[in-house]
């Protein structure tokens, strides 16, 4: 059973917009991400946690159809790039490069970012008209979309890798490429 990719991507963009709005009034303590030495904003935390939930839920549904499952890093990365990507983005990931247990998933023109300008990293934004929260800033950046997808990938890999934590980082470049790095 399936629906069109565009309906799902527009719906998820709306979810991301809603979560960004919620983060403005949410009282979440800021967290120091030890691996980065960076402060993680409430916005990023909320996108990450909701993305995690959806990513783990859809992965659980996908695994129902797998007769057997072994959770080596290669198997996990292959499942993510093929099965997960097809279920969520309507296609397989463009490319995967491997170095030791670091898997670099690359999208040349990531579908969920096609509505955003590619001119510069992180500063451009999509404006939302007629938003329900009048008077608020309703800008959403490419980094917000990436944060949400990173959360989904964390949820997926957590389930696939026998509930061990996999480090997931995401970024998008000035020329429009999007990268997700899974470190086992």
């Amino acid at each position: 059973m399936s629906v069109s990719e565009s309906a799902a991507s527009f719906l998820n963009l709306e979810l991301i917009i809603l979560l960004c709005d919620v983060a403005k009034v949410y009282k979440i303590p800021v967290v120091i991400d030890d691996s980065l030495g960076e402060v993680v904003s409430a916005r990023t935390q909320l996108l990450d946690s909701k993305g995690f939930l959806i990513g783990s839920q859809i992965t659980e549904r996908l695994l129902v159809r797998e007769s057997t499952w072994s959770s080596t890093p290669s198997d996990v990365a292959r499942f993510v790039g093929n099965n997960f990507w097809t279920a969520v983005f309507g296609k397989k990931v463009d490319s995967v490069k491997v170095t030791s247990n670091v898997f670099h998933l690359r999208e040349k023109n990531f579908r969920w970012l096609q509505g955003f300008s590619k001119k510069s990293e992180g500063s451009e934004q999509i404006s939302v008209n007629d938003a329900p929260f009048a008077g608020d800033d309703h800008s959403v950046t490419r980094n917000d979309v990436v944060d949400f997808v990173v959360g989904m990938l964390k949820g997926a890999t957590f389930l696939l890798y026998d509930e061990s934590t996999v480090s997931v980082k995401g970024s998008c470049t000035a020329d429009g490429e999007t990268h997700f790095i899974l470190t086992f």
Partner: peptide
């Protein structure tokens, strides 16, 4: 291009 209806339903539920 199509995506999983289950993914769509889960996103909407969230």
């Amino acid at each position: 291009d199509k995506v999983s209806a289950e993914f769509f339903a889960l996103s909407y539920g969230a």
